[in-house]
């Protein structure tokens, strides 16, 4: 299968501030990929680069094999739901469908209307009067009715209440099942992603920390608990993601391709949330070291 998104050494700076550094990433087609990371990690920057709202300052990014937004045709193959799901407050729901129909050659009008009906949205209602959940659903409807091959969503559920959140994700998964879309979805909450994603990218401190299929990631990460010892003494093939310890006891999160049989450790499977947190705190640590290093130089 080809990649829906392929980044090589991708970087973006705003003035002197580095929003994304040296991002190399391949997302294969046919996945619902979750992009997770703390606020300010560069998730929005990466997604905006992917839809062509931003241009990289270094490296390259290809989406569905082309440079993002290079042509109307490619724009038509990528659906995008932006953060906070912006819609035109003064235009009605029906106007938004018209807008979609006018601007997208592949527009699925029947599908869009069916969805609006299912959501029991009033077509004559002004979009500015919709609730956050309804607005997000409208934005999702617009993005899906384009009939894209790749759907990119930037924190679509961040501002929704738990019920609206579940409904939104449910509709998203229905669309995925119906149209066979590839999806890239960002969130700072692992719980949201856990329900829908089968592929994961952890972005922290403006770098990609880990990427891979969720099942594979879960199968290759372990929590080791035992007497405290030097993490460097682990055998080759076992990388420490995170180490924490008390005086006598140590806990390691380790990535290992093969099973771990060392009897000195109590070996446990870890949850997706623990895995993500381990990578995020590792990145935070590295970032702090880098920053304090810079501080000394200054």
């Amino acid at each position: 299968m080809t990649a829906v998104l392929e980044a090589r050494g991708l970087g973006k700076k705003y003035g002197r501030r580095r929003a994304l550094s040296d991002c190399t990433l391949v997302i294969p087609a046919g996945h619902v990929a979750g992009l997770v990371g703390p606020n300010g990690a560069g998730k929005t920057t990466l997604l905006h680069l992917a839809v062509g709202l931003l241009q990289p300052t270094s490296g390259t990014i290809a989406v569905l094999g082309g440079r993002p937004a290079e042509s109307p045709a490619l724009l038509g193959r990528v659906g995008f739901v932006a953060q906070e799901t912006p819609v035109y407050a003064a235009l009605s729901v029906a106007d938004h469908l018209r807008l979609g129909a006018w601007l997208n050659p592949g527009w699925d009008n029947d599908g869009a209307e069916r969805r609006i009906e299912q959501l029991s949205l009033d077509p004559s209602q002004r979009a500015g009067k919709l609730s956050g959940g309804q607005r997000a659903q409208l934005a999702l409807t617009l993005a899906i009715a384009k009939r894209p091959e790749l759907l990119i969503l930037d924190e679509p559920v961040a501002s929704l209440d738990p019920l609206a959140r579940r409904e939104f994700l449910q509709h998203l998964m229905e669309a995925v099942a119906e149209h066979g879309l590839s999806v890239v979805l960002s969130s700072h909450l692992v719980a949201d992603l856990e329900r829908v994603c089968d592929y994961l990218i952890v972005l922290a401190a403006s770098r990609v920390q880990v990427t891979g299929e969720v099942e594979e990631l879960l199968a290759t990460h372990y929590r080791l608990t035992g007497a405290r010892r030097d993490p460097a003494s682990l055998p080759a093939g076992q990388q420490v993601v995170q180490a924490s310890h008390t005086d006598r006891q140590g806990t390691l999160i380790v990535r290992s391709e093969g099973p771990i049989h060392d009897p000195a450790w109590t070996v446990e499977q870890i949850s997706l949330e623990d895995l993500v947190l381990a990578y995020m705190s590792q990145a935070g640590e590295a970032d702090r070291v880098r920053r304090s290093g810079l501080g000394v130089v200054r």
Binding site: G52, L53, A73, F80, P86, V87, Y88, A89, L99, L103
Partner: peptide, 13 residues
């Protein structure tokens, strides 16, 4: 309003 993110990601450059 952020609506440029909606407008510029339709099938129109």
């Amino acid at each position: 309003a952020g609506t440029f993110r909606l407008a510029w990601t339709q099938s129109v450059t």
